[in-house]
């Protein structure tokens, strides 16, 4: 277990390069990929989440840790041979069409990844079709949409309508967020939940994917 603990510690430290190297070395030594993920990478990121909640770690440190974990995962993934990488759930997320703001959404992505979710990030200015397409391809438990501009908020409803039309809406939950979005607005457009911030978003996703 000690070797995994060292890996977890590197994830907590938030340096991608040592994590990449240590992961490769462990795999070369014949360690089980799944155990490496669970006992090393995810264990590390879970500790980061705990420390963040306790106020002992801050967002930029958590961001670095998430990058470090992903660096390790990238090395392991090719060896999983079709086996699913353990995940807390799959989330498709994007900033809606017409909106270039991505910081809030990126914070949510970081929180989700730090909580063990697999995230498909569609980026900014995401067309309605791109959401539908991604849902078809990845079968997520949750679709997350973000908007900062009051003028782009109506696109959220268009996405939900499109999912409805394609008969995909019942397969997943829709969570919306962003500075001008409110719980009332979420209800109005037919979303399942409103997330006030990144921490709330990850808790809601955990509930929906549980």
């Amino acid at each position: 277990m000690e070797k995994y603990e060292a890996l977890a510690e590197m994830v907590i430290k938030g340096d991608p390069e040592p994590v990449r190297e240590a992961t490769a070395k462990l795999l070369a030594a014949g360690e089980d990929p799944l155990a490496l993920i669970n006992e090393g990478l995810i264990k590390g990121i879970n500790e980061v989440g705990r420390r963040f909640k306790a106020g002992d770690m801050f967002v930029p440190e958590m961001m670095r840790s998430a990058l470090a974990m992903k660096a390790g995962l990238a090395v392991v993934k090719p060896l999983m041979e079709g086996k699913d990488v353990p995940t807390a759930g799959r989330v498709v997320i994007g900033t809606v069409k017409g909106d270039l703001h991505d910081i809030g959404k990126n914070l949510v992505v970081m929180m989700l990844e730090s909580s063990g979710f697999t995230v498909v990030d569609l980026g900014v200015d995401t067309p309605v079709d791109a959401f539908v397409h991604a849902v078809r391809e990845h079968s997520p438990g949750v679709v997350g949409m973000s908007a900062l501009l009051t003028t782009t908020m109506p696109v959220m409803k268009q996405v939900i309508d499109a999912l409805e039309k394609e008969n995909l809406r019942h397969t997943l939950k829709v969570v919306v967020g962003g500075a001008p979005v409110s719980p009332e607005f979420a209800r109005e457009v037919g979303a399942d939940a409103y997330a006030a911030d990144a921490v709330a978003a990850s808790e809601i996703c955990r509930e929906f994917c549980g």
């Binding site: 106020g55 801050f58 967002v59 930029p60 910081i103 914070l107 500075a179 911030d197 990144a198 921490v199």
Partner: peptide
């Protein structure tokens, strides 16, 4: 500024 604990502006 983004508060690095609460993620609020």
């Amino acid at each position: 500024p983004l508060d690095m604990r609460t993620m609020q502006a």
